[in-house]
Simulated assay, not measured.
Amino acid sequence: MSLPEPPARRPDLDDDFAGPRLRDDVWVDHYLPQWSTPDRSAARYDFDERGLRLRIDADQLDWRPEDAPLRVSSIQTGTFAGPPGSGQGTHRHRPDGLVVRSATPTRLLWAPSAGRVDITVTASVDEGCMLAAWLVGTEHLDPLDSGEVCIFEIEAADLSTARCGIKAHHDDRLQPEMTEVAIPADAAKPHTWTAIWGPEGTVIGCEGTVLVRSAQAPAYPQFLLIDLWELDGRTGNYPKAAWIHRVRGWDLGR
């Protein structure tokens, strides 16, 4: 089944990553900075003729010592956290006393409660890496607003498949609903993923083809994150890389 055509109007978010700098009106170049420190959460990246190259460098620190081995370079469309020492913030990923380490302002750069996003990427082929894109509840209105639309998780070890679907996290109004899908494209080359979510549910597709349908969808503001992860420790050659070529997004919840 084919994906619906994008809305006829201009996107609210449209970035082709032409450089030479990352747009600070759309993106934060730190991964969930409230739970870490700036030297650990900062993304490594540069621009070339293909767009934004996310990198994992040999000297890059683990995102948090408690989560090691885990290094990540990420961009996200906003931030939210309570004061340092509190447990408030977007994506409370650990149940064992996670607290805010870095003061982080609330920035809702692009946080629709319903919408569509088209993301064109080239996945990493480097050992131990995973490229992911996801929408996650900001939690700035309610800590229950934590559910996730996982658009894709593509591991370099198997570029023929991806994981997609719904993650509930702390939102008991949602049920986990993840699935593995065959990627209808060469993930090591530019290809486009789409997520559409709103009152009628969630649709996730790739290269114009629907791959996942769910009756569920988080009904609250969500940030978009696009991440390059190194999951298996320091192995292989550096830098490791993946590319983001273009992102277009429509806020359909206004």
Rank of each mutant, 00 (worst) to 15 (best):
181 V>R: 11
181 V>P: 01
182 A>G: 11
182 A>T: 15
183 I>F: 06
184 P>E: 03
185 A>W: 12
185 A>M: 11
185 A>N: 08
187 A>I: 10
187 A>F: 06
188 A>C: 08
189 K>Q: 15
189 K>R: 15
190 P>T: 11
190 P>K: 09
190 P>H: 12
191 H>N: 11
192 T>Q: 15
192 T>I: 11
193 W>K: 09
194 T>N: 02
194 T>L: 02
194 T>D: 00
195 A>C: 12
197 W>V: 07
198 G>L: 03
199 P>G: 10
199 P>V: 09
199 P>W: 02
200 E>Y: 03
200 E>G: 03
200 E>D: 15
201 G>I: 12
201 G>Q: 13
202 T>D: 10
202 T>H: 12
202 T>M: 10
203 V>W: 06
204 I>A: 10
206 C>P: 06
206 C>S: 15
207 E>A: 09
207 E>C: 06
207 E>G: 05
207 E>S: 13
207 E>P: 05
208 G>K: 09
209 T>M: 10
211 L>D: 00
211 L>K: 06
211 L>H: 02
212 V>D: 00
212 V>K: 12
213 R>L: 10
213 R>Q: 13
214 S>Q: 07
217 A>E: 04
217 A>T: 03
218 P>H: 08
219 A>G: 13
219 A>E: 13
219 A>T: 05
220 Y>R: 05
221 P>W: 01
223 F>Q: 05
224 L>F: 06
224 L>K: 04
